[in-house]
């Protein structure tokens, strides 16, 4: 967020991102995926980055761990995790950070697992590598983790290969893997999007519970307002590679101030709207290869005015509620 030292917290933030900018270059075009994103995250806090496809939300998350294709992407700005400068780290230090302090979960669990080793072995290996404990101890911990993520008959599942598990189980196993070294920060990239509704809610509740028990901070990327509401302390709404509004989840839901956030909430369909016309946002999401210099939402915004052609200011409505819109000033 834009206001680093917010009211009453003397603790230093766990994550501090300043002016993070990511550009992808290919032979045909340059994609301005993330444009000067700044925020801080406190220990134990859950931040949801909410945005539609192509808004830059996943890229922001990956940028935090420098998980972007090396030759085609250009990352600038400043990222600190636990007080350490991520952009200055060596590959080795980074790999170490990824395994210990930061855990990651993805939409597709198969990317986290190596298909030729059993789930248990992969979790055990991670624990041994990062914590230097013996194999029996690591196996015990792995079993404990599978129990923790509520995988039924965990002892048997330890020996299972990733493809032998169902979708929800795989997701749970991936969470276990991500938690294997007790990270203080969990990065989650749409981990429930591919799941059925009845499984999605289970995974969300599990994550919420584990987050509370372990006191982890979480950055959770999603396109689904419903998911964000279930899990977030704070929501950052992303559009055109920028955070257009950040604030506590209650505030964003009850009193959204950015026209895009409002549009997103009113166009999210509830059954109770039956028989009424939905208030849709007109037009299409922006083309990230030619973003306008000013507000990226202006072409679709019903309140657009000439001032919107300049980059919109970040307006602090309260210490924790920021809106990037000329009308809020």
């Amino acid at each position: 967020m834009h206001n680093p030292a917010h009211a009453g917290t003397a603790r230093s933030p766990l994550v501090r991102a300043e002016d993070v900018t990511v550009r992808f270059e290919s032979r045909d075009a340059t994609v301005q995926a993330v444009n000067s994103v700044s925020f801080t995250l406190d220990p134990g806090e859950v931040l949801c980055i909410l945005g539609e496809s192509g808004s830059g939300k996943s890229v922001t998350l990956r940028a935090l761990m420098r998980l972007l294709p090396p030759r085609r992407s250009f990352l600038t700005g400043r990222i600190e995790i636990g007080g350490r400068d991520v952009l200055a780290m060596s590959e080795r230090a980074l790999a170490d950070l990824r395994g210990t302090e930061v855990g990651m979960i993805f939409q597709e669990p198969m990317v986290a697992f190596d298909p030729v080793y059993s789930v248990g072995r992969q979790i055990t290996e991670t624990i041994v590598r990062h914590e230097g404990v013996g194999r029996p101890e690591a196996t015990r911990r792995a079993l404990d983790l599978l129990e923790r993520v509520r995988i039924p008959s965990p002892a048997r599942r330890l020996r299972a290969y990733p493809h032998e598990l169902s979708g929800g189980m795989r997701q749970r196993a991936m969470i276990a893997l991500a938690l294997s070294c007790r990270p203080s920060l969990l990065l989650a990239d749409e981990p429930t999007t591919a799941l059925d509704a009845t499984v999605q809610i289970q995974i969300l509740l599990l994550l919420r519970e584990l987050q509370r028990e372990l006191g982890m901070a979480v950055i959770f990327v999603t396109h689904d307002v419903g998911v964000a509401v279930e899990i977030a302390d704070r929501i950052a709404v992303m559009y055109g590679g920028r955070f257009v509004e950040t604030g506590p989840v209650g505030q964003i839901m009850r009193d959204p101030r950015h026209p895009y956030t409002r549009g997103l909430l009113t166009s999210t369909v509830h059954g109770s709207l039956r028989g009424t016309l939905l208030e849709a946002i007109p037009g299409s999401p922006p083309d990230m290869t030619r973003l306008p210099p000013g507000c990226a939402f202006a072409p679709r915004c019903r309140y657009a005015e000439p001032r919107c052609e300049a980059p919109p200011p970040a307006v602090d409505l309260s210490p924790r509620h920021m809106v990037r819109c000329v009308r809020a000033a």
Binding site: G283, P286, R290, P299, R302
Partner: peptide, 14 residues
């Protein structure tokens, strides 16, 4: 109504 011009602008951009 009003957003039409905006929509068209967005369409051109694509």
């Amino acid at each position: 109504g009003k957003p039409r011009a905006a929509v068209d602008a967005a369409q051109v951009a694509v």
